[in-house]
Amino acid sequence: MKIYKKLAISLLAANFAFLGLAQTNTHQVYAAEGQNDQIKYDIQKKNLLLAISDSTNVVSSEVYNSYISADLQQAYLVAISQGKALLLKGDGASFDELRIATGNIKEAKAEMMRQADKNIKTIKLKEAISRNKITVNAAKLLLQTAPNKVAGVRDKLIQLINESERLIKVAEAIL
């Protein structure tokens, strides 16, 4: 009888030990998942905060003030104000709200960069056209005023003028 008691107590102790371990592991897994969600939430919140903090640099930049349309400037400022409103909610803002607000700010900024890039390229193309027109006019003037001095390179000069005029027409068609 003593052996049965000892065996039963041992089995009971082993059973509690295994159940205890299983419960501990289960709680640890759930706790880890909760911690991962909280970490992701905190990271997303920091990303939104960084995007909003960067707005002072963006708004004070020459690109923002010189090459961006008023509509895109307004869209960016709206995205920033929506992000600020979410941050004011504190932990009441959901992960998805934070993610969407951060994405809206980044997309508005990316659209402004695309427009700025296009506007800068347009300005550079106009400057290249202007320089090319000056070069063509100078070459034509040289052919008219000093035909004897440029006689050795006359054909190359005419070829240069024709090629430049062709490129000017192509560039103006692009604009």
Rank of each mutant, 00 (worst) to 15 (best):
M1N: 13
Y4D: 15
Y4V: 12
K5W: 04
K6H: 06
L7D: 15
L7C: 12
I9H: 10
S10A: 14
L11E: 05
F16H: 08
A17D: 02
A17I: 14
F18G: 06
L19C: 04
L21M: 14
N25G: 11
T26C: 04
T26L: 12
H27M: 12
Q28S: 09
V29T: 14
Y30I: 13
N36A: 15
N36G: 04
D37H: 11
Q38P: 00
K40T: 09
Y41V: 09
D42V: 07
I43V: 15
Q44S: 11
Q44N: 05
K45D: 00
L50M: 14
S53C: 02
S53F: 13
E62D: 11
Y64C: 05
Y64I: 11
S69V: 09
S69L: 09
A70L: 14
L72H: 10
L77A: 11
G83N: 05
G83M: 08
G83L: 08
K84C: 03
A85C: 08
A85R: 06
L86P: 01
L87D: 05
L87V: 07
L87Y: 00
L98V: 02
L98Q: 00
L98P: 01
T102L: 02
G103I: 00
E107C: 01
A110S: 04
E111S: 14
M113W: 03
R114W: 05
R114F: 03
D117S: 08
N119W: 00
K124M: 08
E127K: 10
A128G: 04
A128H: 02
S130C: 03
R131I: 11
N132Q: 15
N132G: 07
N132P: 01
N137V: 11
T145I: 04
G152W: 01
V153E: 08
D155S: 11
K156M: 08
E163Q: 12
R166G: 06
I168E: 04
